[in-house]
Computed example of a mutant assay.
Amino acid sequence: MEIPDTKSIISALQIRRKLLIDDLRRRLHADGEHDQLALVNHLEETGDWAEASNENLQDLALIQHEVESLKKIDAALQSLHSGQFGVCHDCGQAIPAQRLAAQPEAMTCVACQQKFEQRQARRA
C-alpha cells in the first residue's frame, strides 16, 4: 500500500485539529471570556426564549459535529503513530492513497464506508 507523505498528513491533521479547537473555544466562550459560556447568552441577545433555545440547539449541534471531527483526527494521528494508518478498520484492507490524501482521517475504505452509510439510511 502506498501511503501519502506521512509528514504532510500529520501536519495537515494537526492544523485541522488546532482550527477545530480554536473554533470550539470561540463557540463555547463569550468574547474570549473563559469563565463565561456563550451558549447561555442567546437569551440576552434575542430576548426571546424560543429563538434563544433554537440558537442554542444549533450551537450544540455544531459543537457535537466538531467534537466528532476532533475524535476522528485524534484516531488518525494515533493510527499514524501505531503504524495502522491506511488500514480499513472494518475489513482490514488498504485504504486507497487517493482517499487518504483527500480525507486523512478516514478509517474505512470506500466500500465499507458505503455499507455503513447504507445501514444508517435504512435505520432512518
Rank of each mutant, 00 (worst) to 15 (best):
F116T: 07
C112W: 00
L28W: 10
A75C: 15
I15E: 10
G32V: 06
L28T: 11
H42M: 01
L28S: 10
Q114L: 15
A111V: 13
V67W: 05
R17T: 00
Q118A: 09
D90G: 00
I3H: 00
L37H: 14
R25G: 06
G47P: 09
I21S: 06
S8R: 14
L57K: 14
A124W: 13
P96D: 01
H29K: 05
I73R: 05
L57A: 15
F116H: 03
L28R: 15
E55S: 08
C109N: 02
C91A: 06
A94S: 14
A97S: 12
S82I: 03
Q120E: 15
D35H: 11
A38R: 05
L43Q: 00
R119N: 06
R25A: 09
Q118I: 03
A97V: 01
E55G: 07
V40D: 11
E117R: 15
L80A: 08
K72N: 12
G32F: 06
G83D: 04
E45M: 04
S53Y: 07
A124K: 08
D59T: 04
C88H: 05
K115L: 10
L13R: 08
G32M: 00
Q58S: 15
R26D: 07
Q93I: 08
E117A: 15
T6P: 02
A124C: 13
R16I: 13
M1A: 04
Q118G: 12
D48R: 09
K115T: 12
T6F: 01
H89C: 00
V87W: 08
